[in-house]
Computed example of a mutant assay.
Amino acid sequence: MLDAGTVYLVATGAALLFALGLGVRVLVGIFREGRERSRKRRAGETERYTEDPIYDRDPPAPDERSSSTCPQCGVENESEFTYCRECAAPLGPG
């Protein structure tokens, strides 16, 4: 007859083996995709680095940025900030 501890160990072991199997499949897929990208770069089918429109854009000019002064500590913060970068006080509207 099986006691609760044995059933728990068998169930836990089976769940861990299942998770390990899924993890190995994901890692093999990532490895294959990386090999394929490397092969394409070596063959000249793709560029080494591609531009990302979100991260590769130029920052706004200094006169285009607006800033707000923290009412608590007086530090200048960019207008996008909701809280002060120095003291974390709320900046409020405007």
Rank of each mutant, 00 (worst) to 15 (best):
E86L: 10
S67T: 15
R39L: 13
Q72H: 13
C73G: 03
L91M: 03
A89H: 05
R35N: 05
R39Y: 11
L16M: 15
C73R: 02
R65C: 07
V7Y: 08
Y49N: 10
A89N: 05
G92L: 03
T50G: 12
I30N: 03
F18H: 12
L91N: 01
E45S: 07
L16G: 12
A4S: 09
D3H: 07
P71T: 03
D56S: 14
Y55G: 12
A89R: 00
T69Q: 11
R39W: 08
Q72G: 04
E45P: 01
Y55V: 15
G29H: 06
Y83S: 03
N77M: 07
S67Y: 15
L22K: 09
R42S: 08
E45I: 06
D58C: 01
G13V: 01
E47H: 09
R65I: 13
A89M: 00
V10T: 09
D52E: 12
I54C: 01
V28E: 03
Y83R: 04
I54D: 05
R25N: 10
P62T: 03
E36I: 06
A61V: 10
R41A: 10
G44M: 04
V7E: 08
P60S: 03
C70W: 00
V24E: 09
N77G: 02
G74Y: 02
T82K: 11
P59C: 03
R35T: 12
Y83P: 00
I30G: 01
T69V: 14
E64P: 00
P60E: 09
S67D: 12
L20V: 06
Y83D: 02
F81T: 05
D52H: 13
Y49L: 14
T46A: 08
A15Y: 04
A11S: 14
P59I: 11
L2V: 12
S67M: 06
M1C: 11
G74R: 10
